[in-house]
Write a protein that binds this DNA or RNA. Sequence first.
DNA 1: CTGTTAGCGCTTTCAC
DNA 2: GTGAAAGCGCTAACAG
Lengths: 344, 344
Amino acid sequence: MATIREVAKRAGVAPITVSRVLNNSGYVQAATRARVEEAAAELNYVPNMLAHSFRSNRTHTLALVVTDITNPFWTTVARGVEDVANGQNFNVIFCNTDENPAKQGQYVDMLLRRRVDGVLLVPADSLGEESRQAVEALQAQQVKVVVLDRRIDGVAVDSVRGDSVGGARQLTEHLLALGHRVIGCLSGPTNLSVTVERVSGYSQALQAAGLAVDERLIRYGAFTAESGHTQTRELLGQAPRPSALFAANNFLAIGAMRALREAGLRTPDDMSLAVFDDLPASYVAEPFLTVAAQPAYELGAAAAALALRRIRGAEEQPIVELVLPTQLIVRVSTRLAITAKNGY
Amino acid sequence: MATIREVAKRAGVAPITVSRVLNNSGYVQAATRARVEEAAAELNYVPNMLAHSFRSNRTHTLALVVTDITNPFWTTVARGVEDVANGQNFNVIFCNTDENPAKQGQYVDMLLRRRVDGVLLVPADSLGEESRQAVEALQAQQVKVVVLDRRIDGVAVDSVRGDSVGGARQLTEHLLALGHRVIGCLSGPTNLSVTVERVSGYSQALQAAGLAVDERLIRYGAFTAESGHTQTRELLGQAPRPSALFAANNFLAIGAMRALREAGLRTPDDMSLAVFDDLPASYVAEPFLTVAAQPAYELGAAAAALALRRIRGAEEQPIVELVLPTQLIVRVSTRLAITAKNGY
DNA sequence: CTGTTAGCGCTTTCAC
DNA sequence: GTGAAAGCGCTAACAG
């Protein structure tokens, strides 16, 4: 495997000149450049990026640390990241934490050893101690960090996320406008900012409508179909029984729909369902759920762009906190309460 | 940032001893080891994997080159890859080719420069020239390649894929057993082995049942919802009109369902639908489609394991060609032809 | 069991 | 514009 030295010899120049040609750095005469390029081609030269990275301390690598790439939301985010990164000659390493801070910590160590230039982090426990430490550990080694989707408090770091409060409020307002007065809230783990914010958006909408927030109607759990199933069963088994559900994430909604079906309830006839996060159009033949859609691709793309900007040297710029709006898409899983079979 | 030299100085040993401790290579006395570890901890030492990789020519990195990570099938494969890789201290770089051989070529160049240890490649044009060249270019630089999902002929390379022929035959036999005699076939690009094999499985089942293969019933296109939509409309607009459809991939089925709905046809009452590839359970509230499910996670895991095995030095082992069986899951999108409204 | 020497392939620094 | 020298941090090869 040819080295830069061999190319230099063949072109009759010094290695450094070859380096300058290949990296487009410094001035090289057109004729010299041509000779170098010819020599490189003849030798089938493949630059050794390891040596390059080692020497220059720049790996041209981003890491995307998500909870589970299997969730279509993260998949779409990932695609946005990859497209932007690839466009700027960066590669992306993917990591799944499964919402596990310990696993997140291991990944952070690995990424530190690897000297990745930037990390896009979806904190496993955004409101906990460990995620903040992870960010600080990364930043201490000059790794550019962008916090994705969730908020971490008490640390100066760029962040990109969807408007959880706004989206939840939109959906709840929509349900209220349809006449629903008893609205169940399915949500996630309490240590995540998105849970807190979405429940908060839900509560805000109720209060703005002059309604009291009934804690019995708010469930917490995991952002999974199983948890959505459990939470829904709990809500169905108690009084007051809701005429509509707000699901704080797509998987929760899937579980809710299963529980409703098992209980012999139909959506939207017996129960309206409004959901945070859409499913990609290619997954569903007949879009059905009323959702607050986050711009998943754009979130990923923006986060990558932000990280790359810092990596290119925008160190002095002020911290960026990007909150992208959600889009309310009314489909057929929600309907007027007055027409619902249960009489609300 | 502390180096191995500083750790060595602090521990009163030579750098190489520190290296041996950190890499668990060679013998080191327990006491020495303890001192080194203590020194490393005190200095908050983070090994420089760049230097390590550069020197040892091993990056501990795998690349997964798929067509589009946004397809839930690839997402699941990716998860399998990542889990196995991470378990052996490897990281994974993801690349999307969008079925574009040129993009694939660019990625291969990049991965070559990066000196990744292994590449799991879903060839963009498996039956074309460029994918074979990509594999050969990689192998020429000692990169371990595993071809995923699709077949590339004429090159000695490990491969892992689902049983396309068998799965397609299973589904078609199922439709035949239900009494369907005119079965449409929606399929993908002709330059992919999976297209050829799935159409072949479809044809085999027909022939085994003593039926002629009617070319008018076989459509080709892209593995997308849009194409499934188009292909279905074409089939609906011609004679003989099928009473059942076989879709060679999940996205095709989504498009087919849309086209059927637009045409006022219901599944399975007016048209049975059997599909290659399942959707992950967490995406669908009510699993509906009769499918031949590929073990997506296992495919990814097996491919990663195979690559890692080669990387660990199983150079001399014979070429492995792993074909994992599909599982027929009969749900409610297929039914007896005799009961169908169109009178078959 | 531990150390010395050398060098991976490239780029930084300084000279011309 | 181009080059010579030095060295990034680590480990292979060989001593002891």
